[in-house]
């Protein structure tokens, strides 16, 4: 039997079989794949002769549910508009989705697609890093759950197995004390690609910072983040936070300096390395010198 060009499985189980048997390329909204493999008018997109595995219709991949432990599980093929409309979507993710594209793209694009394509500039994926999202994968060997940062290893590179599918993304829901910080410097105000995507979140309750997440997109080959630095700030009250910040006398303190050391921006058709560096530093300082101290001092409005 010849290899089919387009596969539409009836169930997730069938999808996994097809994925393994044909090395099929999973596709839901096509907003990444059909742009990267752009077809001229009246022609087929050059898809390297790998069959397409359409998964946009599978109920297992398109539902959103709470897990009862404060996490929201979002099906990998859920379109952005549905994520935006869900009442429990964390604000940070919501902000990133609102600004990531125009309605037509939000009506087609999915988290699974953005994660699978591993673009270092993907706004929603950047928010997932800051939220410490976990990704569910299904394969013939069974299911596994991986922190987002461990799944993506390089531009366009992930550890998703050749027989696996991304099935869902889980994010912690906002709770009392949750804060989010989202800034995007785009090529324009709407429907824009990011020159820099900057996401941060965490919780400040009774003057203590927990669960800090910071992620910066489009300033390195992958989204920049640091579990170590986040852990260093864990549990800080204002005094301890200030002490941490004083460990380095650089502008913006210890955290700014350490994050600046992690970024490696380049000049490309959208922006320059100098601009990316300066703006990242400005945003880090705004977060670490103003936003977090204000939250910790309980003066937030």
């Amino acid at each position: 039997m010849s290899t089919p060009a387009w596969i539409r499985p009836a169930t997730l189980k069938e999808a996994l079989t097809m994925r393994r048997d044909y090395n099929a390329r999973p596709l839901a909204g096509a907003t990444d794949i059909y742009v990267r493999h752009r077809a001229a008018t009246g022609t087929l997109p050059p898809l390297e002769d790998r069959p397409v595995l359409y998964v946009g219709h599978l109920p297992e991949l398109t539902s959103i549910s709470e897990d009862g432990k404060g996490w929201l599980r979002i099906g990998a093929a859920t379109v952005y508009t549905d994520i935006l409309e869900h009442p429990d979507t964390p604000l940070l993710l919501r902000r990133a989705i609102e600004e990531l594209a125009a309605p037509a793209l939000r009506n087609a694009g999915t988290l699974g697609g953005n994660i699978g394509n591993a673009s270092p500039a993907a706004d929603a994926v950047c928010a997932l890093y800051a939220l410490h999202a976990e990704v569910d994968l299904a394969g013939h060997a069974g299911e596994r759950r991986v922190p987002i940062a461990q799944l993506i290893t390089g531009p366009g590179k992930t550890t998703v197995g050749a027989d696996e599918l991304i099935t869902a993304v889980s994010v912690p829901m906002d709770r009392p004390g949750s804060f989010h910080y989202y800034r995007k410097a785009g090529t324009r105000r709407a429907n824009a690609l990011s020159k820099i995507a900057f996401c941060a979140g965490g919780t400040v309750l009774e003057g203590r910072l927990t669960g800090l997440g910071v992620a910066v997109g489009a300033v390195g080959p992958t989204i920049v983040h640091s579990r170590d630095l986040e852990v260093r700030a864990e549990g800080s009250d204002l005094a301890r936070y200030r002490k941490l910040q004083q460990e380095e006398s650089a502008p913006g303190g210890f955290l700014t300096a350490r994050y600046m050391a992690l970024i490696s921006p380049i000049s490309d058709q959208r922006s320059t390395d100098a601009y990316r560096r300066r703006v990242t530093e400005n945003l880090l300082r705004d977060l670490f010198e103003r936003t977090i101290p204000t939250l910790l001092s309980g003066k937030a409005g």
């Binding site: 125009a102 090529t187 324009r188 709407a190 429907n191 690609l193 058709q269 959208r270």
Partner: peptide, 23 residues
């Protein structure tokens, strides 16, 4: 629109940005 090496760098409408209704 820049062509430091001769070929324009901005070759798609995603990279050559004209104003949207929100700009």
């Amino acid at each position: 629109m820049e062509n430091p090496e001769g070929r324009f760098l901005q070759r798609t409408m995603a990279d050559y940005c004209i104003p949207t209704s929100l700009d």
